[in-house]
Design a protein around this nucleic acid. Structure first.
Length: 551
RNA sequence: GGCCUUAUGGUCAAGAGGUUAAGACGCCGCCCUCUCAAGGCGGAAUCACGAGUUCGAUUCUCGUUAAGGCUACCA
């Protein structure tokens, strides 16, 4: 077969050679050891938590090595495109401190960098040229078989093949077509897919080093994978090889689900004579499903699969990043303990430290990281973060915060900015609820739906009414408590816990019960931060009103 | 069916041919305390199973099992 002739028959309009493109995108001039890495999502949905997870690896590694982190949009699956998904993905990356240095920046926004176009659907001419080259050296052939239109058909066909033949044939029948047969099909305007003519032998293996998985022995590829679909668009396999070569990618980070097709990708690199990049196949974030089985985080079922969920809930971005980082390099948290005030960016992130089994998403851990992070913020930082969150997700609360800035900051500062700060805020959406008695109590002498079951209403009334008479706004913390103790004694409550425990029947209760009644009246709850702190932020009128209006 | 990957407490995990098998989250208890949170102290809980190599295996090898993935003109 005359392959050059075949190449011209299949791609008569390609006028460039691959050398043209290889020269057009020369080797990058970067410092020694610099890595070039990319995030290459397909815009078929929002940015998945797993994308953020692997993007972090690339961002951290390129930051560490003074390399380049770029964004390429893999929009080759025309059927599943979702509008704006690419833009959202870019914006999410920026939000989470992973702004790319180069590439796509959103739909209708300018691209950055000299290795574009960074949108695959705009690179079809390039792919065609590379495809033609493979035909011309006898490593690709056209396949005129009818394609299956949907996944179900494909799965059925596969099942049928399994049942009838016991295995699935890799080598495609069309690889044996003669030039004349092909020519006739082309003249008849039959659409074709271009496939790799695999030279692999499945009984042979070769050595391969993965940055995460380590040294592996891999079976040679035997599958005639599709290089150009019949709609002229390449699937991932060819686009990956061509783009990562032209764009100078040095490390490809991708999910472990790609590992089985690695062998085919390497054969394509090999067919071109290109040196493949290094690879890091990452574990996949999972969760426990209803049946107790591990499964991949699913965008349809799991809210935490969408990075926007964490923003809506008001998790600080650093908390989310540190959680993912903790999953990636588990020694991070030891470093964090030793370096409580440093940025996570100062942590020496190592790709090879990434574990190789699939972690489960753990909200307990995220919440813990988040509440620790928030507890270290100053009241001004808390206020501004909360305000920003509320602006998008709770506008009433936003207005309240804006109009009562000083007061709100004081509330947020209760037990903050000291050695043992309170750690009861996990995310911004918690704040309004946990401090509702401070923010919006006006019409509720007792918080809405407060359950007074088990509370002695007579005692509650007695304590509240007598405390309302003696409350003094000018007391300092000690005087405040002394006054309560005095009142407790007068009402026959114990003020010494040991005495009380010895003879509880001699008392109506302990001074802690007195505080409980006051707390219920002031906050509508049995638990709250330090009562003195709360009272000192409320006016005397407000306190008296809360103590008395119920009765 | 074939192929690939993984297996240390409930979760994230360190670890090495000989360890009392780190640490963190969660859980439980005690202390502190006006309650809660925090903090302090303590506790329960792990090397999937079976062979082999070895003086010795959770660690190395081989099987088994389980879970996940791929086997698409999806990425």
């Amino acid at each position: 077969m005359d392959y050059k002739k075949l190449a011209n028959l299949l791609y008569p309009n390609v006028d460039k050679t691959i050398d043209y493109y290889l020269k057009k995108y020369p080797k990058r001039d970067l410092p020694k050891g610099a890595e070039v890495m990319r995030i290459a999502p397909s815009p078929t949905g929002y940015l998945h938590t797993g994308h953020a997870y692997s993007a972090f690896i690339s961002r951290a590694t390129t930051r560490k090595t003074n390399g380049v982190f770029y964004f390429r949009l893999e929009d080759t699956d025309q059927k599943r495109l979702i509008e704006n998904a690419g833009t959202i993905a870019y914006d999410m990356l920026c939000y989470y401190d992973m702004k790319p240095d180069e590439g796509y920046t959103g739909d209708n926004r300018p691209q950055i960098g000299n290795y574009g176009d960074y949108i695959q659907s705009k690179r079809l001419k390039i792919y065609e040229c590379f495809a033609k080259y493979l035909v011309s050296i006898g490593r690709a052939f056209p396949c005129f078989c009818e394609k299956s239109e949907n996944k179900e058909d494909i799965l059925n066909k596969r099942q049928e093949q399994l049942e009838n033949y016991g295995n699935i044939e890799d080598k495609d029948v069309c690889r044996n077509l003669t030039y004349e047969e092909i020519e006739k099909n082309i003249k008849d305007n039959k659409p074709f897919a271009l496939k790799l003519l695999s030279c692999g032998d499945s009984s042979k293996t070769f050595k391969f080093h993965d940055l995460i998985k380590g040294d592996r022995e891999i079976r040679e590829n035997t599958k005639d994978v599709v290089l150009i679909k019949s709609n002229k668009i390449p699937p991932y396999s060819l686009a990956h090889v061509v783009d990562d070569t032209l764009m100078g990618t040095t490390i490809v980070v991708r999910g472990e689900e790609w590992f089985p097709s690695l062998s085919a990708h390497l054969e394509i690199f090999n067919a071109f004579g290109f040196k493949p990049p290094k690879y890091a196949h990452t574990p996949v974030i999972c969760k426990l499903d209803e049946n107790g089985n591990k499964r991949k985080l699913s965008k349809r079922k799991d809210k935490e699969a969408d990075v926007r969920y964490f923003i809506e809930q008001g998790y600080p971005k650093v908390a989310v990043i540190e959680y993912l980082l903790n999953l990636l390099n588990s020694d991070f948290e030891i470093w964090r303990q030793k370096n409580p005030t440093q940025s996570y960016k100062d942590f020496d992130f190592k790709i090879e430290k990434i574990g190789s089994n699939n972690p489960m998403f753990d909200f307990n851990k995220l919440n813990d990281i988040s509440k620790n992070y928030i507890s270290k913020l100053s009241k001004d930082e808390v206020y501004s973060n909360l305000l920003k969150w509320a602006e998008s997700y709770d506008f009433d609360f936003y207005n309240y915060l804006l109009n009562n800035e000083e007061y709100c900051k004081n509330v947020l500062n209760i037990d903050r900015e000291n050695a043992k700060p309170r750690k009861d805020i996990e995310k911004w959406s918690d704040v309004k609820n946990s401090f509702s008695y401070m923010f919006n109590y006006n019409n509720h002498p007792f918080a809405p739906n407060y359950n007074l079951e088990g509370i002695d209403l007579n005692k509650l009334k007695e304590v509240c009414l007598s405390y309302a008479k003696i409350y003094n706004k000018d007391d300092d913390k000690q005087q405040w408590f002394e006054r309560i103790k005095k009142m407790a004694q007068d009402l026959n409550y114990a003020t010494d816990n040991k005495l009380y425990k010895q003879n509880p029947e001699n008392y109506k209760g302990n001074v802690s019960d007195v505080c409980m009644y006051i707390r219920i009246a002031i906050t509508g709850r049995k638990e709250s931060p330090n009562l003195y702190s709360l009272c000192s932020l409320l006016s005397k009128d407000e306190i008296v009103k809360r103590l008395t209006s119920k009765f």
